[in-house]
């Protein structure tokens, strides 16, 4: 009793809320500090142009790290939703049975590093930044039975990798000493299967198993020239485009017949 006011025990919900708040504050205080922002890497080209004879592109990336740091580079696309046919065993045969909706996987994920990621970073740092197969696919939601989730996440990754949209290439980032620490360079092939869109290249600077610095640079992939004109026509004026397609195809067919007919006529004349 204080100054005549009786002390009553605090209600249980308030106690729980207080404890939770305390835990969150402690967790935030003990958590890894966010990696420091570093200057953006130099990217060449900054825009990949998909012209009529586009066959993928070579992209060069370079920048400066501090002495003793390892570097991991990730080219990443936006997360997307996709639908797939599901293969299912039915007696002795495999059939397509039902659809599977997948969300949370990036459209493109290309990882390059100066060494094996498992040796550069501690497991919690890899998970935090989604820098390996397991951590990349862990948040991917696959609409299947719970016990099948792991299998289908793995299948999703393998399918993307088979299309060259996902890749892990350790040892491809080159590090060499420089006056300000270490210069890193990376030359990589931008896959010709990647769709046009906005991507970003992320550079992780690592020391003692932790990410200590992070820099980013956007990478645009755009259609140019005739492909751009055709793509815009196909969506913007679809009716005209449809008629043009039919006329062009029919003209090609009848035209080819005419050409072959003329060639046949010449042969007969001889």
């Amino acid at each position: 009793m204080i100054a005549g006011i009786p002390l009553r025990p605090a209600p249980v919900p308030f106690l729980c809320a207080g404890l939770l708040l305390g835990c969150q504050i402690c967790r935030a205080a003990l958590a890894d500090p966010p990696p420091a922002a570093r200057p953006a890497p130099a990217l060449n080209p900054q825009t990949v142009e998909m012209g009529a004879f586009f066959d993928g592109a070579r992209v060069h990336l370079e920048g400066v790290a501090e002495a003793g740091e390892q570097v991991i580079v990730v080219a990443r696309g936006a997360e997307q939703a996709e639908d797939f046919n599901r293969k299912r065993r039915w007696g002795p045969i495999w059939i397509s049975s039902g659809r599977v909706h997948v969300t949370g996987g990036p459209s493109v994920w290309l990882l390059f590093s100066s060494g094996p990621v498992g040796e550069i970073l501690k497991p919690h740092a890899i998970r935090l930044h989604r820098l390996d197969r397991a951590s990349l696919t862990a948040p991917v939601h696959v609409a299947v039975e719970e016990h099948e989730t792991s299998l289908f996440r793995s299948t999703y990754f393998d399918l993307k990798r088979s299309r060259q949209l996902y890749a892990e290439q350790p040892g491809t980032v080159q590090l060499r000493p420089s006056a300000s620490g270490a210069a890193y360079t990376l030359d990589f092939a931008w896959p010709r299967t990647a769709p046009p869109g906005s991507y970003r290249t992320e550079v992780y600077f690592c020391r003692n198993g932790e990410v200590v610095g992070l820099s980013e640079a956007p990478l645009k992939v755009v259609k140019v020239g005739l492909p751009k004109t055709i793509a815009e026509l196909s969506t913007g004026r679809a009716s005209l485009y449809g008629i043009l397609c039919i006329l062009a195809a029919a003209a090609a067919g009848f035209g080819m017949d005419r050409v072959v007919g003329l060639m046949g006529g010449k042969r007969h004349a001889h």
Binding site: P227, S234, G242, C245, A248
Partner: peptide, 16 residues
């Protein structure tokens, strides 16, 4: 072809 071009925007004239 016409229906695909106007409904699904799926006809690639270069491919065709």
């Amino acid at each position: 072809t016409y229906m695909q071009a106007t409904t699904n925007f799926n006809v690639d004239i270069v491919l065709a």
